[in-house]
Amino acid sequence: MENQDLYYEKDFLPSIVRWGRGTNLLGVLFAFIPPLVCTAVYGIWPGWGPIFAGFVMQASVSGVFWFVEPISYFNVLGIPGTYMSFLSGNIGNLRLPATVAAQQAAKVEAGTGEGTVIATIGVAVSIIVNVLFLTIGVVLGAPILSLLPANVITVLNNLLPALFGAMLAQQFVPHPKIGTVAIILAGGMLLLMKYGFLAFLPGSPSYAVIIVAVFGTILIGRKITESELKKAGSAEK
């Protein structure tokens, strides 16, 4: 058992970190290839001014999430899953559900070595499925996809809410106390945001909701578990 843990800690994780850092930093460079082709080969240059203006508008919306999302979702995705998820995108709406579904099916817990290995497989499968669907979509093209009746698309809008509810339930049932804490924190913050009480924060304050919901639940959950362990310990004596 010691040896196996040793391989995971000393061989697997360091090699994942080495390759993950390399591929993700390469991913930063690769992201510039399509716009560079557009500018250098086809000679279309919008000018620094508009690009900067567009970037500032986008960064004011996304900037906080560059940090908040990796930090908040890391505990579910694990090290390899985090590299893969943020290179491939669509985290909350695809990579997280795929990870949780894989871990549930394999009966492993997030945060353990087994959970991390299975998360990698879950994210990889979701990448294949997603690229496959997109490839079919791009081959069919907009004219054919637009033939989808409008009400099908309206109905599809309700798929993710149902999935998110299911993800919460799958965690809530085995951890009802931690789940209740999370619902109170997230629900309270969301209502505060909805009725304008978080308006003092810069930008759209949903990042504050995520931070409080995730880290508040972690800290309170730990306190609850610690006191439960203590109680169980003194009962044994």
């Binding site: 979702y73 997280l96 998110f164 919901a213 995730v214 959950g221 578990t225």
Partner: peptide, 27 residues
Amino acid sequence: MLPVVSAGAMCGAFSYLSLDRVVLFNS
């Protein structure tokens, strides 16, 4: 405590994602 941290992170993240839709008060 690591699995507790993960359980807390998941409950927190999924509460945010799902309640974000609940407070829309529509379908």
